[in-house]
Design a protein around this nucleic acid. Structure first.
Lengths: 202, 202
DNA sequence: TAGGTATTAGGACAATTGACCTAGAAGCGT
DNA sequence: ACGCTTCTAGGTCAATTGTCCTAATACCTA
């Protein structure tokens, strides 16, 4: 097999395992077992674990950028695009309830480890942040675009954390509904509109 | 020294290190070095690392319960009590920006490790959840009390996660202000009141 | 002070980790 | 078929992990 393909397999396996088990808890042996390679052979593709982590983050950055570009290419209204982001909580519900948000948990782990790659992992947040900011600007909330982007990013992180702690999909649906209502209330020129709270939660 | 005192020292050192570095990344040697004990002596106090984790969680449950009881003992209005919870984000800002929320990050790590103690760590969330729920009931939002409690818990988790990723205290202050406004809007019988968004965020 | 219990230090243990080396297999252009 | 580069398997290495044992010390009671 050509090196680039093997490398890609390794990165994708590491991507999944870093998400499911965490960076530190995933060993080279785990990834080797998944890919079907010998342990020792890793050194040919990645000199250190940090180098592998860097490749995984780069891979995630590319995947994320391409997803966001895809959403932006669609001829949708900006608020509908923002809803695409919110809907990630529903689309990836099962994984999120099991392992949290891939971005949030990675940044959290790297923060605790005081790892050099922490700032690079935070670029994943930046991708969402600036994309959301752009949508809010197009939405007509130029001045507050970044704060609104941070707000919705914050909410999705909070939902993901509690979803993983409680494994409660009704809560997730409920809060996604709240985010939709909140977003509707952000339309500029809309008369005052209180944030509603659906109460289907058990 | 009496065993109970040493045990307490160990638990408190482990509590801090588990928070700052994470459960897995903290070794017995780290804790021993902090407390000033020999590594081997640990086995006398805790047979396994899981037993130590359990003691740490128990310790956190007691600390948290006592904090919440203290807030509830004060003759305050329920919404002011809820603000005490929100203010934790300000009071512990430095630590949160460095290591995230102690509860959220522990639950997240244990979820990834598929650890038996995960549900016990989630009891920490339950403590806050039920306490907040009680305040919202006293606030006159009987029917939606639990959903409102989960909502504010979710927000504090989201703020903590992004605070750790961005180390941005303006963001924290901004979102705390938003939570205050949101809370004011939850007063029953209050005319519609839109969630405001302060825009001091850089 | 004597005797027994409670507590400690220091080290041994196997297992696992990331890192690294080397011999050789596989692939490819000539 | 040749030679050269690319790639791989298996193993070694020191360090660190949680666990566990044992001899010695500290402490308290009688």
């Amino acid at each position: 097999m050509v090196a680039a393909a093997t490398r890609q397999q390794i990165v994708e396996a590491a991507d999944r395992l870093f998400y499911e088990r965490g960076f530190e808890a995933t060993s080279f042996a785990d990834i080797a077992g998944t890919v079907g390679l010998s342990r020792g052979n890793f050194y040919y593709h990645f000199k250190t674990k940090d180098e592998l982590l860097d490749a995984v983050i780069t891979h995630r950055l590319l995947k994320t950028r391409s997803m966001l570009d895809g959403w932006e290419a669609k001829a949708e209204a900006p608020d509908e695009r923002i809803l695409s982001f919110v809907n990630l909580l529903i689309v990836n519900q099962t994984k999120i309830m099991a392992h949290g948000c891939p971005v949030g948990t990675l940044c959290g782990e790297l923060a605790k480890l005081d790892h050099i790659a922490k700032s690079r992992a935070a670029e994943l947040f930046d991708l969402f942040r600036h994309w959301l900011s752009r949508q809010f600007r197009a939405f007509g909330r130029e001045a507050e675009a970044d704060a609104l982007a941070m707000h919705i990013l914050m909410r999705s992180q909070g939902v993901a954390t509690l979803a993983a702690a409680y494994c409660d999909e009704i809560f997730v649906r409920n809060e996604v509904e709240n985010m939709r209502a909140w977003l509707a209330a952000q339309r500029p020129g809309t008369p005052v509109f209180p944030e509603t709270h659906s109460q289907q939660h058990s």
